[in-house]
Design a binder for these strands. Structure first.
Lengths: 162, 162
DNA sequence: TTTATCACCGTTATAATGTTACATTTTTTA
DNA sequence: TAAAAAATGTAACATTATAACGGTGATAAA
């Protein structure tokens, strides 16, 4: 992770579907209820911690935080919750950082493109059907049956370009 | 990594620029010479090992192999060589697998899209300017200065669809 | 020719990330 | 309520990656 620079207006997130932890929690309850799966206290807590961190957060950072209130927590505690949250589209894993962010539009993802600022470390999720359709088209022409994709872009965010 | 299935004709790679280890080594020598950087014996050996593995290979698997001939090798031996090879575009890192593959078209990359077969574990590199241009366009409209990107797609390759 | 520098490598240790396996508890289902 | 399934606790371990420091050999500067 780059030098910690705090840049609260790194990008314009005004179009985001979820503006705060509370929104994310409400949406998560709704989605889990619709799917008939259980948003247990640990899962909920991990989701909240991810949303309260306004940057991608790693599994062991989550573990440190959750240990403060839940002394017996261990790596599987965190990884199981993350698996659940990712499986149900509530959280994205950022492969290039081994870190996690809340999904901005759960239950409605075409293709999540993750933009990562190399200066401040903040992330923007960009959903675009066109790009994922293009990739699906190209891969289908090769006879490849696409099941998932991950697009991560590195660069400098508007806030850090100054 | 999925169950080991050996599927030598998983995809049509007839369009690949580099067909074998020897091609890859020759091209690497050429590129390093043009850039004035040193393709030392260890770097060359790691590149060969990556190309001889016809699947993505992890750093510690490379370490095991190189230890057979070079008893004193340790993790930094491998990671330093990998850093070099990646920096000069000779090797790609596959983020979702923590593994490495030879770049099929070094010195001429628009956007390497990595297709990963979930059944046989083999990988195809697809270079396409259009997709990377589309992403560049979209991110630019957000004021994001793009420096690099990684696109990985999971699914089933033609060979494994049967 | 000495001395400084630099890139590369050897070596040891350790950090960071992620998983297995099995026991226990809680919740749901029959 | 009893059986089954889902979730969690717990300890140990596996995998991936980096830090730190010293040595070596080539090249450049004094």
């Amino acid at each position: 992770m780059p030098p910690e620079k705090d840049n609260p207006r790194a990008w314009d997130k005004s179009h985001y579907h979820l503006a705060c932890v509370e929104d994310a929690v409400a949406k998560a309850h709704q989605i889990c209820s619709e799917k008939g799966v259980r948003l247990t206290p640990t899962r909920l807590r991990i989701l909240e911690l991810i949303w309260r961190s306004h940057k991608p957060i790693g599994a062991y950072a989550l573990l440190d935080e959750i240990k403060l209130e839940h002394k017996s927590a261990a790596p599987p505690t965190v990884y199981r919750a993350l698996d659940f949250l990712i499986e149900h589209g509530l959280v994205h894993r950022i492969q290039s950082l081994n870190a996690f962010v809340g999904c901005n539009d759960p239950g409605h993802v075409y293709s999540g493109i993750i933009l990562i600022c190399n200066d401040c470390g903040d992330v923007l999720e960009m959903d675009d059907a066109k790009i994922s359709e293009t990739i699906a088209l190209y891969t289908n022409n090769l006879g490849f049956q696409l099941s998932s994709q991950s697009i991560e872009a590195n660069g400098t965010c508007p806030g850090c370009r100054g």
